[in-house]
């Protein structure tokens, strides 16, 4: 079993793979769905090639955040890898987004941070928290 990435979300999206990939990489579309409601996205950039910029300006709880990175891999419509300099995220976060076709109308989408340091951190934390719970008799 491969070690679990620290941040991991998986979902079956009821749309064809090309459609999901487009929503993920089209700046105009990104603005329409990316920020969880009711917050909004002020600006989105996605230069769709290796080395291209990806950037989102979001408003969360009335505050403006900018997250930005560069595409390390751009393999439509299957895989995206980009670093993600988010002021609130661990340093050097690398996002991997995998698109898997399940049928003509369904795509499995998997999002993870493939940061080796944070991966070890999470494993370490799980073990340490386990010991701590044991120690505290919880």
């Amino acid at each position: 079993m491969t070690p679990k990435a620290p941040v991991y979300a998986k979902r079956i999206i009821k749309a064809p793979i090309e459609r999901v990939f487009r929503a993920w990489t089209d700046p105009e579309e990104l603005k329409l769905w990316h920020a969880p409601e009711p917050e909004g996205i002020l600006a989105a950039i996605s230069e769709n090639h290796v080395g291209g910029n990806r950037s989102l300006t979001l408003i969360i709880d009335g505050k403006t955040y900018q997250v930005a990175g560069t595409y390390k891999e751009f393999d439509p419509p299957h895989k995206l890898v980009y670093n993600w300099e988010d002021p609130s995220a661990p340093n050097d976060s690398v996002m991997t987004v995998l698109f898997k076709p399940l049928s003509d109308r369904a795509t499995e989408l998997e999002v993870s941070y493939t940061n080796p340091t944070v991966g070890t951190v999470q494993q370490g934390l799980t073990i340490i928290m386990g010991h701590l719970q044991e120690y505290l008799g919880a």
């Binding site: 941040v7 991991y8 979300a9 998986k10 979902r11 999206i13 009821k14 749309a15 459609r19 999901v20 929503a23 993920w24 579309e29 329409l32 769905w33 990316h34 920020a35 969880p36 409601e37 989408l109 999002v111």
Partner: peptide
Amino acid sequence: YWEETLASLDRYLE
């Protein structure tokens, strides 16, 4: 956060 974001994408594409 990411679970919510993916849910939002699903709603949008729907």
